[in-house]
């Protein structure tokens, strides 16, 4: 947990981290849940939405099961399951799958490029319908999709929340028109390093559009912490970006009554 000078503590929740070994590991990279928790403590991150590498890089079904098993002892870790379209029967039927994800205050990560499917209704419409019905956030890395596919998905599923991961500092000319058109589109911040990006998006589209993430253990978490803590945004907006938005999306925290 980080402190906001003169205000309420900022409670960070990381939407973008992994456990499990992976192909491109370097000596400092960690794989175990306990190491992730130690890094979160070092950085002042309270909670995390975690994906297991087995699910993204080996078997979604077995990786999701492994994830549930290893994070079960930790109340501050939430599951980010990897999803597939239903037709091949590799994971539970969409409605059942989505209900289980929601019951665990989880989210879903999709990897259409790596997993050889399309983010379109002819391929994944039933899955996307189910995720939309259960208000489950869908995380997708930019390398796994395209702006056109994101636009098409949100056009057909207006209630679906998509969090785009692993972008860059060069995306404003593409993502701003999508922000303007689709109110449920969100952006994870660790790779969004354009000057004043946090402030400019907040001013134009609201702080609800930004979600804190680190990219751990491949990417350093100090960068995105700094983006939030040294922002000129007021404390309540920092708190939303740091974790409030994600907690509400996962059903961990209630939307404040207006």
């Amino acid at each position: 947990m980080s402190s906001s000078a003169g205000g309420d503590p900022i409670r960070f929740m990381d939407c973008h981290c992994h456990v499990g070994s992976f192909e491109g590991m370097e000596e400092p990279h960690f794989t175990e849940v306990e190491d992730l928790l130690a890094e979160m403590k070092h950085l002042g991150i309270s909670d995390a939405l975690v994906t297991h590498r087995w699910a993204s890089r080996w078997s979604p079904r077995l990786g999701n099961e492994k994830l549930e098993e290893i994070i079960a002892p930790y109340a501050n870790l939430y599951p980010c399951y990897v999803a597939l379209p239903p037709t091949t029967g590799e994971i539970a039927p969409p409605a059942e799958f989505a209900r289980a994800v929601r019951a665990n205050h989880g989210a879903v990560r999709v990897c259409p490029s790596d997993h050889q499917w399309r983010l379109t209704d002819w391929c994944a419409g039933e899955l996307l319908d189910a995720l939309e019905a259960e208000s489950i956030p869908v995380l997708v890395a930019m390398q796994q999709t395209s702006w056109d596919d994101i636009a098409g998905t949100l056009e057909r599923h207006a209630g679906l929340s998509i969090i785009v991961l692993d972008t860059s500092y060069r995306i404003n000319r593409s993502i701003y028109p999508l922000f303007a058109r689709y109110p449920t589109l969100r952006l994870e911040i660790h790779s969004y390093q354009i000057p004043w990006g946090i402030e400019d998006v907040t001013e134009r589209f609201g702080p609800e559009r930004l979600v804190f993430g680190t990219g751990l253990p491949e990417s350093d978490g100090g960068g995105p912490i700094s983006q939030v803590m040294y922002s000129r945004l007021p404390g309540e907006q920092k708190a939303l970006i740091a974790g409030g938005n994600l907690r509400r999306m996962l059903g961990i925290e209630e939307e404040p009554t207006r």
Binding site: Y169, Q193, P195, W196, G223, P224, S226, Q227, Y230, S231
Partner: peptide, 10 residues
């Protein structure tokens, strides 16, 4: 090109 905060946080 890039905001000064990320490298500084690292």
């Amino acid at each position: 090109f890039i905001d000064c905060r990320p490298q500084f946080g690292r």
